[in-house]
Design a protein around this nucleic acid. Structure first.
Lengths: 342, 342
DNA sequence: TATCTTTGCTTAATCGTTTAAACAAATATA
DNA sequence: TATATTTGTTTAAACGATTAAGCAAAGATA
């Protein structure tokens, strides 16, 4: 069963009594090799079950045809879909991707970057962990001279390409919607302020309130790690207020789900007593009862654009990156949790 | 900004006026290199920001220190957690993993296998796509002489290691539980019969009914692709029966969620009119209302064991695999959807 | 003092593929 | 017929790291 000694280009050469170089060229369809030889080479390659050795060609050419992808976690619909689309675009051009997850840990993210650089990837497409504030390791990627594309969670200071939705504006859309529904005391369970996207959502929330002449109540603006558990906790905190909110905008669907549970347990009527809006449009948001209004982040487009951006750099001989933001509009998917019957 | 020309072992050698071989040995802490030289080498390596070229060492040693992981999808809690644990174990031994998803497509899975073999991975840990019946590509892995470990979704015919839970017995545990709750007409929305794990769940269901002297009603045994959508459809189908079931055991949590939605929409009381049990213990199962009873698949253990099994082979010089099943017990997590108040 | 060991390094081959350069043979051009 | 061009191939170096083998110098042993 164990057939070690994989067949190499040399084995094919020996069978046909030609040089290894000729075989290599034949397999790459070089114009200087006769059709006859090419056919023979292909036939023998097939017979011997030849599989090219990626390590050797990558070493020689200096291109590994591998692209590293760093995401905080894969078990989120957004990231999983984004990865899928990145893969689709890159596979077409002969690239394969190495997916790594940071689990929102800075330490793990650093390890992942090292592992990817060590594997000699031709580029990295990344969405940063919540914890990441020190950009030293990302600078390492740039120092390695390979393109770095960020999406969803990026940092201006890195001065590289970024693809994401307009978080600031998304908050406006959400607040507009809630005001339209008649809500006047809108709370925000936001993500960590230090993470850019969450900061933008918070700023958008504050500015949108201002726009509608609604007062900003510090009690109603809460920072959270956006897990289900913390969503529960923060919702309980809001319910304990003397003056409860009449709407809660949660910066993540998981936390929104936690909030939903608490509201149901306390038999608060949704959306009439408190309207609820999440962010990210995870599949379960459409599936729970009541379904949760949420923001779709265009994972489809983001993945494609990130991959295409990488490919553009890959074609160029010299890489000269700069802060280049591609901001997509977001879609508010209005569902039962915020749509009041008139 | 762009520092191409990565520093190599040779650059270090030049600086110190020693040979590249000496540098290599110094970096590997060879006993035949003086402490003085070692220190100097490490210092220069650091100064020049030396990063070893994985491709070169992998080519030379024949070991890439990469392990391929194939899963149907990453946005499932089970697979995501398994991957995480595989990674944890392998990282410790200096291995990195390449995650690929088949999206339940046979074609994609084949492409992934080719890509992994091409990348010269030292082994593959895989869970097969639903669609996969042709094992030709998996045989290719074996032919390449690298270890193949399967988990969750495997095939006896492959004759390789398999780690999974006892699906057959899980069905027994579920049926026992439902009978205990007083259910007599237990339906099963199962996965595809051709997939081994789902087939085992179906067989377990049938045998468990027999054990309890319950008749097997063909109307109550339905095949499904286990998506939310299909879960809805199949539940509607069951509700349309003249003689409705009083319990439904769904072979996947997503489909169970779809079923739950339909039950709620039709205002069927859960669990009193119809009790519901899912499979896989996805996070949302605990989070929806009512929470769904489900089976925990020990993603933690499965990932660890799969990785450890690979490591064992990696240590051996010759690989001789055979059908070697490690079957773990499953845990039934009883929740509101099936627990009747007495 | 002569021989053996150990230490610390160098040389050179190697992994499998790619590719610039060389070259012989066939064909075209003047 | 002599020269230039094209065709189809070979030779050899290279990618960067590893490692068996070799070797000189220093130290140990008899």
């Amino acid at each position: 069963m164990v057939k070690k000694n994989k067949t190499t280009i040399k084995d094919i050469a020996n069978v046909l009594n030609i040089s290894a170089a000729a075989v290599s060229k034949a397999l790459h369809n070089d114009s200087r090799i006769s059709e006859k030889t090419k056919k023979a080479v292909r036939q023998v390659a097939k017979n011997l079950n030849y599989q090219p050795n990626h390590l050797a060609s990558a070493l020689r050419s200096g291109k590994s045809k591998l692209v590293g992808v760093i995401v905080p976690k894969t078990n989120s619909n957004f990231f999983s879909a984004t990865i899928h689309n990145i893969e689709e675009v890159l596979n077409e051009e002969g690239y394969n991707i190495i997916i790594t997850q940071s689990n929102e840990s800075f330490e793990k993210e650093c390890k992942n970057i090292d592992a990817l650089l060590y594997t000699q990837v031709d580029g990295i497409i990344a969405s940063m962990a919540n914890e990441t504030v020190n950009l030293e390791f990302y600078e390492k990627i740039k120092a390695a001279g390979i393109p770095l594309i960020t999406f969803d969670r990026g940092e201006n200071d890195l001065n590289v390409d970024y693809i994401g939705i307009d978080d600031y504006n998304s908050s406006h859309i959400i607040v507009n919607h809630l005001v339209e529904q008649g809500c006047q005391r809108i709370a925000h369970i936001g993500g960590f302020k230090r993470t850019r996207i969450f900061n933008n959502r918070i700023r958008g929330y504050i500015d949108a309130l201002k726009k509608h002449n609604l007062p900003l109540d510090e009690e109603l603006l809460i920072e959270s790690d956006l897990t289900v558990k913390d969503g529960r906790k923060k919702m309980e905190q809001l319910l304990a207020l003397d003056n409860r909110p009449d709407a809660v905008y949660v910066a993540g669907d998981y936390a929104a789900l936690g909030a939903l549970q608490v509201l149901q347990e306390k038999e608060v009527k949704i959306p009439d007593e408190i309207a609820l809006v999440g962010f990210g449009d995870e599949p379960f948001s459409a599936m729970v009862t009541p379904s949760i209004t949420s923001v779709n982040q265009h994972s489809y487009k983001i993945g494609r654009i990130a991959a295409e951006t990488f490919l553009e750099y890959a074609k160029k001989p010299k890489i000269e990156q700069s802060l280049n933001k591609i901001i997509l509009d977001s879609d508010l998917i209005i569902r039962a949790s915020s749509l009041k019957k008139k």
